[in-house]
Design a protein around this nucleic acid. Structure first.
Length: 645
RNA sequence: GCUGGCGUAGCUCAACGGCAGAGCAGCUGAUUUGUAAUCAGCAGGUUGUAGGUUCAAGUCCUAUCGCCAGCUCCA
């Protein structure tokens, strides 16, 4: 047998025997224990694949993203094998990998119980221990259809009938077989660090008209340590859950009598209003005008805007004087009424109307949760009416404003997504194409990288969404900028051009924080409840050492209050350590200690949330310190009192 | 809306179909305290709601409301 030439990823070229298995090659190089699969000429393949001709080989290590993906896919198979062994008659459907794990959808009459999940998990460990070889097999599609039909696997048959290729691959481990493109790990013994995390219903092919399948979720890692670390992170995320923080810090609550509608307590309302106040300050600089519009409009308005046709199911209605009225789910139609209240000249544009009006949308019961998806909320909403020529300038200003805001909140990387025409849309295809091009152009000019989401646009226009990453590196969609050529049309909005003709303005819908409720939830998780001083409901708490200092403490308290600071006085008859602990757990940026020494010197001893004790200073100095921190925070400088404190 | 899980004191959680309990928080008293928990006592409940099975229901069954995870949806 003659040799073939194998080029390794490092550029090294080897002469090997034709037909040599990749695994054997890895073994001879002494790296077989770290390798899970390989790419031959760029295509990921199993390790037992023989090398038939000159080729390049790139190793896929166990702990690489690709390696983990393969491992998770194989773990999904292992789970399916365990399930079918334990529960004969259960059909397999699909079992893809997801971030950090995998799932597999099964067709079974009864759902899996948590106890069964445990049994499946232990069976999986048994199967892994027996280290079954995982073998790839190829066969013509019709034969595979026959095979799976004989096994009673209706869903696999359905999948096979839609596969275009005439040759398909199967994977066998022990007496179990599954249709799969692969690649997989060489044997089940490689799999070990996994945990089944949950069970849920899921529709066949993700369509709610189809029958429901039973989905089992799991996570899998290359080592036990990595698995433990992952589970620890999940615990950490749970501790940061904004619903928990909201209750612990007495910010907001929910009540069954107002499902999916947060009730903001005094401290939560401070945060809420500070967020709005912050946006208002920006609005003055960026040339926005705030407006106030009705909560309820004649249904006629919603018919004209198109919401009635498209989103009636998600709106609240009421009947008064034999007429139907709709509670506003959006501010935009109201703003068109202001625009249309008089003749507009090109000289008036752009007009930027901001509105913090309360919106109500009926969200289906299963989709609501915490502050992230509610039925009653408000947004830092604004609509810009401008000429088509002004779009670019407006977009530039918007992108600048957006950066400023995200810097103030320390959100890291921003991903940009351009969403294009959806299935249901208003207006003509030509108008859509024009709008999409305008958005793409502004992004390119701003030098922002973006991804395209085909078909994800709003029904009235294309949009740009901005996804930020929080402290746990989770992505959240916050800002959205939507171009709208349709609404001005529907409300027959016009302006007089320099030439004297009537022209159609363009409308830009935009929000930077998005819903204030949702933003607050995300922010709370981002900073684990330790809000920056400018947002903290209580900025400092004065704690006396004994009640001997009560009078002096009250004097300091009054002084800080007069300076506009949100401050509390804890003069209770408790030990200092106890009071410090409570201030710390309430995530108050400063606990200000006042004892005999301070009283004597007319000073205070601030202690930062993180535990750092500052040297005694006068009240005036402390106020200066607070002021500096607030302005530094708003400029986006490093936090002195941060989430990590 | 769909599938599953869970609703016990303000919070976190116990209680085989057989007397509803603990810790923390709260209140009262003592303690006058120096940077993450002082001690003692007291009080706290129609076990989400409505039916049913049973001699007996927090526990079993049915309905309903809410919450959670996921699916679908998200102007």
């Amino acid at each position: 047998m003659e040799d073939i030439q194998v080029t390794l990823s490092g550029g090294k070229v080897l002469q090997v025997l034709r037909g040599l298995r990749i695994q054997e090659l890895a073994f001879s190089l002494g790296i077989n224990s770290r390798i899970i699969a390989a790419k031959v000429d760029g295509v990921a393949v199993d390790l037992d694949r023989p090398l038939g001709q000159d080729c390049t080989v790139d190793w896929i290590p166990m702990d690489s993203p690709e390696g983990l993906d393969i491992l998770r896919h194989s773990t999904a198979h292992l789970m399916a094998q365990a399930v079918q062994g334990l529960f004969p008659g259960t059909q397999v459907t699909i079992g893809p990998t997801i971030e950090d794990g995998f799932y597999y959808d099964f067709k079974r009459v009864t759902p899996f119980t948590p106890e069964e999940l445990e049994r499946i998990e232990s069976r999986m460990h048994e199967l892994a221990a027996s280290n079954l070889r995982i073998k790839r097999e190829e066969m013509p599609r019709p034969r595979a259809i026959e095979l799976f039909r004989a096994m009673g696997e209706d869903y696999k048959v359905a999948i096979l009938e839609e596969i275009p290729e005439e040759k398909v691959s199967l994977y066998r481990q022990g007496d179990w077989v599954d249709l799969c493109r692969g690649p997989h790990v060489p044997a089940t013994g490689v799999i070990g660090a996994f945990k089944l995390t949950g069970v849920a219903g899921a529709y066949w092919r993700g369509d709610e008209r189809n029958e429901m399948l039973q989905r089992i979720y799991g996570t899998a890692w290359h080592t036990e340590e990595a698995l433990r670390e992952h589970l620890r992170l999940l615990e950490e995320a749970k501790k940061r859950d904004h619903r928990r923080i909201g209750r612990e810090l007495d910010l907001f609550s929910f009540h069954p009598l107002a499902p999916a509608s947060p009730i903001f307590h005094p401290k939560g309302a401070i945060v809420y209003n500070e967020l709005i106040a912050y946006m208002r300050r920006l609005y003055r600089r960026y040339g926005y005008q705030e407006v106030i519009t009705p909560q309820i409009f004649d249904a006629e308005l919603w018919r004209r805007s198109g919401h009635y046709d498209h989103f009636r199911e998600n709106m609240y209605f009421t009947r008064v004087d034999e007429k139907e009225f709709g509670v506003k789910p959006m501010n935009c139609p109201g703003h068109t009424l202001i625009y249309a209240s008089k003749r507009r000249s090109y000289r008036d544009l752009p007009l930027r109307y901001a509105d913090f009006g309360r919106l109500h949308r009926y969200e289906k019961s299963g989709v609501t949760g915490g502050l992230t998806r509610v039925r009653s909320f408000s947004q830092d909403d604004a609509h810009i009416f401008c000429t088509p020529e002004q779009i670019e300038g407006e977009m530039t200003a918007l992108l600048r404003m957006l950066r400023e805001v995200y810097q103030a909140f320390r959100f890291g990387q921003i991903q940009v997504k351009l969403s294009t025409r959806p299935e249901h849309f208003l207006g003509s295809e030509e108008v859509w194409a024009r709008a999409e091009e305008a958005l793409a152009e502004s992004l390119r000019k701003e030098g922002l990288e973006y991804a395209v989401n085909p078909g994800e646009g709003a029904f009235y226009g294309p949009k740009i969404d901005f996804v930020v990453s929080d402290a746990l590196r989770r992505g959240w969609q916050l800002a959205t900028i939507q171009l709208d050529f349709s609404m001005p049309e529907r409300f027959d909005l016009t302006y007089i051009s320099p030439a004297g003709s009537e022209e159609r303005p363009v409308m830009i819908h935009r929000a930077i924080l998005g819903s204030i409720e949702r933003f607050m939830g995300i922010l709370l998780e981002h900073c684990a409840g330790a809000l920056p001083i400018w947002l903290a409901p209580v900025q400092a708490r004065l704690v006396t050492v004994t009640d001997q200092q009560k009078n002096y403490a009250e004097k300091v308290f009054e002084e800080l209050l007069a300076g506009g600071w949100r401050v509390e006085l804890d003069g209770r008859n408790e030990k200092l350590g106890y009071k410090i602990r409570e201030a710390q757990m309430a995530k108050i940026p400063y606990a200000v200690v006042i004892g005999d020494r301070e009283m004597k010197d007319q000073t205070v001893s601030p202690r930062r949330r993180g535990g750092k004790t500052l040297k005694p200073m006068s009240v005036k100095e402390f106020v200066e310190l607070l002021g500096q921190e607030v302005s530094g925070e708003l400029r986006g400088e490093d936090l002195t009192v941060g989430a990590g404190d």
